[in-house]
Amino acid sequence: MIATWPCPLADGAVSEELLVTIGEGDAASLLIIPPLFAEQNLMRRQLVLIMRHLADAGITSHLPDLPGWNESLLPSSEQSLATWRVAMSEAARHLDATHVLAVRSGALLVPSGLKGWLYAPQSGDKLIRTMIRAQGIADREAGKAEASDQMMDKGRIEGLQLVGWDVSSELFRDLQSADFPGGDLLTVISQEEAGGSGLWLRAEPGEDLKQAQQIASLIANSIPSSSSEDA
């Protein structure tokens, strides 16, 4: 089901953001947090596949947009990690989330207190370094040469456009020092456990049915089914 959810903004206004919900089961309400920037587009198809498999296991899952993401009408250049974290916590509350599945840099936005899984989590620093590297390669191809250090300074001071994404100085600095949470509530799903390869590595969005089934099973197997006859 495709709907919207009311995302509260820092200035007190509300932004209606896209929400994809799949499943009607009551075993769990799972909040899905996709990776940030380019990897979000590359992973969306695979995430929806995982959601379909979760629905078969009685788990309802939700994939909300945040301001500046995907279909959002708000510019990405005006967002910060802090506002995204608040927004994701609000989404969890609005959706009565019982669990969370965060993928790659989506792990930086996990609301505190939720049980769940981090699939191949990535730190903010590594995300920024990879985007800077990609921009550097594209610049060199275009005959421009700006060293990574210069781009880093520019990002911290005035913000910059990285591989097509407007990153504000605040978001840039936030990301540089952001790490994903640990603790007993969260379990890391490694690439070995998921099987196949990380689809965010590809140049085009792809899907891997077997991997989607595997990730959904890893999650479903550790959530007791409330609709099960054995329960």
């Binding site: 380019a38 590594k126 990609a134 250090d149 590595l201």
Partner: peptide, 27 residues
């Protein structure tokens, strides 16, 4: 398939899996 983002991902994976750091000047 090897656009700039994919090359950047390739280099980062090489760092992670092969255990070294790639500097700007190396590329």
């Amino acid at each position: 398939e090897l656009d700039s983002m994919a090359v950047a991902g390739l280099l980062t994976e090489m760092e992670d899996r092969l255990g070294f750091i790639i500097e700007d000047d190396d590329v």
